[in-house]
Amino acid sequence: MQDANLQRRLILDIPTGFLLLFFVMPLAALVTLSFWQTENYKIVHEWTLMNYGTLATERAYITFFLRSLVMAIGVSVTLVALSWPIAYFIVRYGGRYRIIFSLLLVIPFLSGEVLRLIALQGMLGPAGLVNGALIRMGAAPLRMIMYSNAASFIAFIYLYLPLVVTTIYLSLINFDFRLAHAASACGANRFRIFTEVVWPLNLSGTIVGFMLAFIPTLSASLVPRFLGGPNGTLYGMSMAQQFGESGTWALGAAMGVVLFLFSAIALAILSYGVDLRRTGFTGLGRQ
């Protein structure tokens, strides 16, 4: 009895403690720092709301933020729209090659953001495959895909597509397609089967996929820096600069808090009104 309780506590408490120490604590530190000041690359322990004031009033930061928000929403919506047919095809028609298809999707995701951006640059850059081919054919290079928000957009799609497809795939593969047959037997046509049975029962998986693309896009710093060009600065990139070149840590921390809050708000909005029982969620506890 005694050691069974102890064992149970250790098994749950070790990972919980780990997250509290190294996940929750740092976030708390970030929040604290955002209410302090940095002067001449030194942190001044004086409570102030100035950082948030700066963020709320300075036009550049507002622009960066709105640009990030629009970009993140656009990227996530596009990704969900692209991922559904892919995941659906693999689950429905993949047969015994399902696992191969899904792994082929995961592999590019595993080689890391920097290296994947390098590869993408090889495609999209001024001397890349696309423009190289255009020039060889005698056409003018496409300016749109070089150092612009469009280039960033393509990069985000490229980076997070595997993640979103995999999430929706995992949702669909656990979906019992006999329910679709049952709906069909009840007289529903293809469209209604999708809107009334398949989509709602995979909504929670879709939301997770959406969030997994939304959050890193909202906070992205590498992509805009590398591909965004002069008018492509995003919030996360600006935040990274506060911690790097400008040395204004406290302001950067405030930007971090803003990003975190908006991610949390997005998650809350999407989860709100989603009744887990109506989205095919079956719970986790199996005693």
């Binding site: 969030m211 997994l212 906070s219 990274a240 921390a253 971090g256 990003l259 949390a264």
Partner: peptide
């Protein structure tokens, strides 16, 4: 659900 860069920072 927390961006990597926020974890780092």
């Amino acid at each position: 659900f927390v961006a990597e860069i926020l974890l780092g920072i």
